[in-house]
Write a protein that binds this DNA or RNA. Structure first.
Length: 878
RNA sequence: GGCGGCGUGGCGGAAUUGGUAGACGCAGCAGACUUAAAAUUUGCCGACGCAAGUCGUACCGGUUCGAUUCCGGUCGCCGCCACCA
């Protein structure tokens, strides 16, 4: 073997070897246990960033480890290739999105290959190819048929920058998730998927996903947002006709305390009332503009205006005024709420401001608070707890507790046919229409003769192919200006018709790609029996930012595919790992104009004192100070990005992979450090050298490992071998059950330190060193596959390391003759004793008490108690 | 405001079921090798103390023979949701 560790040569050689052997192409094999390991596929933005590298390294380590454990492992890769950045790039460069996207895919694929990921590239998919998106279209039509997809004209979130509609999930703090532009409200006909139909299932099934992070399950449960309450109507007359103003409430027990009804500005009744009331119309307009930030909305002043309309109290018939309130959401429930100022903080604030009556109807059972002035303090006391309170001032309901009051009032409302108990969801149906070009065309045709309802494209005419040569100009969807695309014949009547030019939300593409990997290449079906072999994904890995959108959509989509008979799985991802972000230092300097200029950490020199504490930092080029702003995710605007490509060229893929796995546990954020990468490279060189020193220039390892008999070893040899096998046990557990790679690597490093001190040159000693090196190489192989591939050969093996079975520890090597016992006196460490393994408690106790160090602390004091934890410690209480 | 999570050396982190706090690495300090530097390598590296030892896992209290770990409270940071009736 070569003396020098030369990652570039080693890595390209290993990769060639794997490629020649088609080592990562995998076929379904019912005889072997399958393992589907999937990392979230990337958007082909141009180049990989460090977040990708971390994500895919984690997946690769797990895949390679599982493979060595005998699983039939599928690790595929694809491209989430539709989306807006391609259109923006197209506008900037005048290049069609298709070309930009495909160029990026080619480049990023090379990058992924240079990192040595064990990916089955024969299953690669790109969502922008007709082979893939035709099944989006096909399944959309199936959902239309099944009533899961439907068309509705509704108020939508309009992103003025991207000129498109956004789903509720894509609006963050009132701004577009991608552009950050303040979202406007618009009325547009579009297509929805009835995810609300699955709300209960999606909520309940969270309990079947114990291997998902708790916080992701909580976030999904909150997002689905189940509330139990009562929906009922306040009767009123409008032009002689009896109508109902519906509201939803979880506190129907306070119904007798209603003193007003508040409706949203967009409510039809508000629109009606505003017709002859310019002041009200103005107020409504003001509300619709609204402040964008939700956080501000929450603390914003309650504002309202009377509509001049009145409704009847559903039980008492009392006249109740209807107000427009800026705090009422049109998008939740019926866009109207009953106002109970005594028992709802928002209503209380509103009533105080506008002088509306406050009527207390609930109070603590043990208390008589009647006649006391009503203050915010009272509100908190009375409203806070549902339990322990009873109704007052509520006629026949007086004295009932919360649950009984709800039941009684709900029953009475039902008897009057005004309402009933209802479960209300926060989740809303998923709007998938986008007025964008670079997406999957929605396969419908609008025919002027066949009526308003669009006609489905027949299966035989699928896919509706997206023309690839167009370049958007920033003014809406270019498909709408391309007659060759939209002009078509109606499949029903044959007359001239217009093709739908909206495309699908790209979250559609990513909602089922994992099943396509499992049915790769099938041009006759969306999925086939192979999907039932692979699904569900055994391990899914990706960023926490997808905790709601992508994961919820995928869960929904999988259920629909199940219900329409396409797959057996009901949940797509059995196990979820949300990897942490990759952070880097941010350095800046205030310019003369007050604007901050940012510098890459690689160009900054950190100054430390003699203890290593950081005292300041200067720019390398001018030696002038720069300010450290802490660590944040890598971004262009902060100038703290790190290019994986340059690192691979400088250090090799293995050192980068090792550093990322060692620096932090996978779920924690990872703080980038060039020194840390240097340290990883140092370790790789050390590993290489230690093997080189053992096997020499053209040496082969001592292939006699199987012959080690533990009983024939001397004490030092036995201790060394025990360390080797104990490390194997720990690393196996860390990589498998615990999924913490940093401690696994630390354990191997520790073993390397032990190995360096083991200088036994006897034949037996050399065999033990050979065994240790083989174990070390195997244990590290999922993490640094290239170097270990070469080292495995150097150690005298001809087989492919990645197919080698994961080693098993020799139980005889793990046996300990004696154990060290820690002795505490009153809980403080005072001594250590060595006793034979498995010694009875009495013997341990005697040995501990006899220890001179311990004796010193015991003298003259009466023993009160001795606690013996076999194999671990003794605590003497005096 | 609600829910969830987290606070350990100069730094990243370890301590897996309540049982030796600080593994492993980075940075730092001292030495060896070298004409020199790099590379490599050896040792030290929580605080106070000459030492024996004492203190120490954000802070205060509790349970326990024993608490970084469990419980209650306070402070701080992070994440998500946020006028959801």
């Amino acid at each position: 073997m070569q003396e020098r560790y030369d990652p570039a040569a080693i890595e390209s050689q290993a990769q060639e070897h794997w490629n020649r052997a088609r080592a990562f192409a995998v076929t379904e094999d019912a005889a072997r246990p399958k393992y589907y390991c999937l990392s979230m596929f990337p958007y082909p933005s141009g180049r990989l960033h460090m977040g990708h590298v971390r994500n895919y390294t984690i997946g690769d380590v797990i895949s390679r480890f599982k493979r060595m454990q005998g699983f039939n492992v599928l690790q595929p890769m694809g491209w989430d290739a539709f989306g807006l950045p391609a259109e923006n790039a197209a506008m900037a460069n005048g290049v069609p999105p298709a070309k930009w996207t495909h160029d990026n895919i080619a480049y990023m694929k090379r990058q992924l290959q240079s990192l040595g990921f064990a990916i089955d590239w024969e299953r690669e998919v790109a969502t922008c190819t007709p082979d893939y998106y035709r099944w989006n279209q096909w399944f959309f039509l199936k959902m239309l048929e099944a009533g899961i997809a439907y068309r509705k004209t509704g108020i939508v979130n309009w992103d003025p920058t991207d000129q498109t509609v956004l789903a509720n999930e894509q609006v963050i703090d009132g701004r577009g998730w991608r552009t950050g532009a303040v979202v406007e409200k618009r009325e547009i006909p579009m297509y929805y998927l009835r995810i609300t139909k699955y709300a209960q299932e999606l909520l309940d099934a969270l309990d079947t996903l114990p291997d998902w992070p708790e916080r992701v399950r909580t976030m999904q449960a909150n997002w689905i947002g189940r509330s139990e309450g009562v929906r009922f109507g306040f009767p009123y007359e409008l032009s002689g006709k009896r109508e109902l103003l519906h509201v939803f409430t979880t506190r129907v027990d306070t119904l007798m305390g209603v003193t007003f009804v508040a409706i949203a500005a967009e409510h039809p009744l508000a629109t009606f009332a505003a017709k002859n009331d310019p002041a009200l119309a103005g107020f409504i307009e003001e509300c619709k503009q609204g402040t964008a930030m939700e956080a501000e909305l929450a603390v914003m002043e309650k504002k309202g205006m009377p509509t001049g309309l009145f409704v009847d109290h559903p039980l008492t018939g009392e006249r109740i005024p209807v107000w427009v309130g800026n705090y009422v959401l049109m998008t939740y429930g019926d866009g109207a709420v009953m106002g109970v100022p005594a028992h709802d903080e928002r209503d209380f604030e509103f009533a105080n401001k506008y002088g509306l009556p406050i009527k207390q109807v609930v109070q603590q059972a043990a208390r008589d608070a009647q006649g006391e002035p009503f203050t915010t303090d009272h509100w908190q006391e009375w409203y806070g707890a549902k339990s322990g309170n009873v109704l007052v001032n509520s006629g026949k309901y007086d004295g009932l507790d919360y649950q009984h009051a709800v039941d009684a009032i709900a029953a009475d409302l039902k008897a009057r046919e005004l309402g009933d108990k209802k479960v209300q969801w926060r989740l809303r149906d998923w709007g998938i229409s986008r007025q964008r070009y670079w997406g999957c065309p929605i396969p419908l045709i609008h025919c002027p003769k066949c009526g308003d309802v669009p006609v489905a494209v027949p299966d035989a005419d699928l896919p509706v192919t997206l023309p690839e040569g167009l370049v958007p100009d920033g003014s809406g969807n270019p498909l709408g200006k391309t007659p060759s695309f939209y002009e078509c014949a109606c499949p029903t009547c044959g007359g001239p018709a217009r093709r739908e030019t909206d495309t699908m939300d790209t979250f559609v593409d990513s909602s089922w790609y994992f099943m396509r990997f499992a049915s790769a290449g099938n041009d006759r079906a969306m999925v086939d029996e192979r999907a039932n072999y692979w699904m569900p994904v055994d391990q899914y890995i990706g960023g926490i930012e997808h905790a709601i959108l992508h994961l919820l959509y995928s869960r929904f989509w999988t259920r629909v595919m199940h219900d329409l008979g396409l797959v057996k799985a009901t949940e797509p991802f059995a196990n979820l790992l949300t990897q942490g972000m990759v952070l880097n230092d941010i350095y800046s300097r205030k310019g003369a104009d007050g604007r901050a200029e940012y510098f890459n950490p690689a160009d900054v020199e950190v100054q430390v004192d003699s203890k290593g504490t950081r005292t300041g930092s200067v720019l390398r080029s001018d030696k002038l100070p720069v300010e450290w702003e802490g660590m944040r995710t890598m971004s262009k605007s902060k100038g703290n990005g790190v290019d994986p490509q340059k690192l691979v060229e400088a250090y090799g893929a293995d050192s980068i992979r090792l550093f990322m796995m060692f620096k932090a546990p996978p779920e924690d954020s990872l703080e980038w450090s060039d020194d840390g990468v240097e340290g990883a490279a140092r370790f790789m060189r050390r590993l290489w050298r230690i093997v080189y020193e053992k096997v020499g220039e053209d040496g082969r390892g001592v292939r006699t490992v199987g012959q080690i008999k533990n009983s024939e070893l001397n004490d030092e040899q036995r201790a060394f071998r025990r360390a080797v096998h104990a490390t194997l046990v720990k690393v196996t557990d860390d990589l498998g059950r615990r999924r913490v790679f940093n401690t696994a690597i630390a354990a191997v490093m520790e073993l390397m330190n032990t190995l360096a001190k083991f200088t036994d040159n006897s034949t037996t000693g050399q065999v033990l060193v050979q065994e240790a090196l083989e174990f070390i190489v195997q244990m590290l192989s999922p993490i640094v596959p290239h170097a270990t591939h070469a080292l495995w050969q150097a150690l005298g093996h001809d087989d492919l390391l990645l197919d080698r079975a994961w080693p098993a520890a020799d139980p005889a090597a793990l046996v300990q003759d004696s154990v060290d016992i820690v002795v505490q006196v009153n809980g403080k460490l005072r001594g250590r004793v060595t006793v034979p393994a498995g010694a009875p408690e009495d013997q341990i106790r005697e040995a501990a008490l006899a220890d001179p160090q311990v004796q010193k602390w015991l003298e003259g004091k009466p023993l009160r108690k001795v606690i013996v934890v076999p194999g671990k410690l003794v605590n003497v209480v005096v």
